[in-house]
Write a protein that binds this DNA or RNA. Structure first.
Lengths: 142, 142
DNA sequence: TTTAATTTGAGAATCATTCGCAAAAATAAG
DNA sequence: CTTATTTTTGCGAATGATTCTCAAATTAAA
């Protein structure tokens, strides 16, 4: 069993919930991609093999995977919620193109360090960074 | 005429648009508050004095004010888009408390500088920063 | 004042997300 | 292997913020 599956199963167990077939299918779809994703894209991926997993179940599974610490709600783009992996991925910031919707990721320990220090002066305990900017990507600037 | 009104008028003129009465009312409502706001709250404020400004017009005016550099889309909270002032306010980042929902604002020119530099190496043109973190505020940590 | 262009309000339309519910699946117990 | 209990599912309907349509109103210029 893959590690993320074990994590998810254990998390569900602590909540008295079950790792069902649809939940496993959704988890696999989520970890079959290594980029940002949204429910619609996930639905398309899943439907190629499993005609009977509904959108509702995907929507219902997202918060569970977030609570399990596997993914996080990354940003909102073109009126859709987007998610990204936490498990197995480094923290990073996002540049979102307003025009084509492309998302560029960049790492910066420096930024997180500064933010963390600022938070400390405020007595604020950071659980999750949310750093980025919107604008125009190189392609769309022409 | 207030400065923000002049800015807005000038911006509109460059686009061949007009500073109409509803747009002026909306602008005033926006700058009557000094905190984050959403369209719904704005609608309530405006409706106290002007019964005939529609939600549609408010929604239509937001992107104009953003493009004019007066406000920016700050964050999404409770399924609603929230906005904040740029004009007359220093750029800042947000700490959002997961427990009580409180938003703490902090300034950091440094962070934006770093992000801007990162964007440049990518050919990305930033229109709007989006920097913050989620976690627990001082009060909720006890 | 006439004219041409932009805006408006009202309500309908859109679209992502959530809900309600009866049927299906999972787990535990016998 | 049944039965009983709980959780889950898929479906379609509901929700709610935002956007669109369009005829009437407003604007600014000639």
């Amino acid at each position: 069993m893959k590690k993320e599956e074990a994590i998810f199963r254990d998390f569900l167990k602590t909540k008295g919930l079950k790792l069902t077939k649809p939940r496993r299918i959704i988890l696999n779809a989520v970890f079959s991609t290594h980029e940002h994703f949204n429910v619609d894209a996930l639905y398309d991926i899943i439907r190629k093999r499993h005609k009977n997993v509904s959108r509702a179940t995907i929507y219902r599974t997202m918060p569970l995977m977030i609570e399990a610490g596997l993914i996080k709600q990354a940003l909102r783009c073109q009126a859709k919620d987007h998610y990204e992996h936490i498990f197995g991925h480094k923290s990073h910031l996002h540049f979102i193109c307003d025009k084509c919707g492309k998302i560029v990721e960049k790492e910066s320990k420096q930024v997180e360090k500064i933010i963390k220090d600022l938070a400390e002066t405020e007595g604020f305990e950071i659980r999750e960074f949310n750093v980025g900017a919107k604008g125009l990507c190189a392609d769309c600037r022409s």
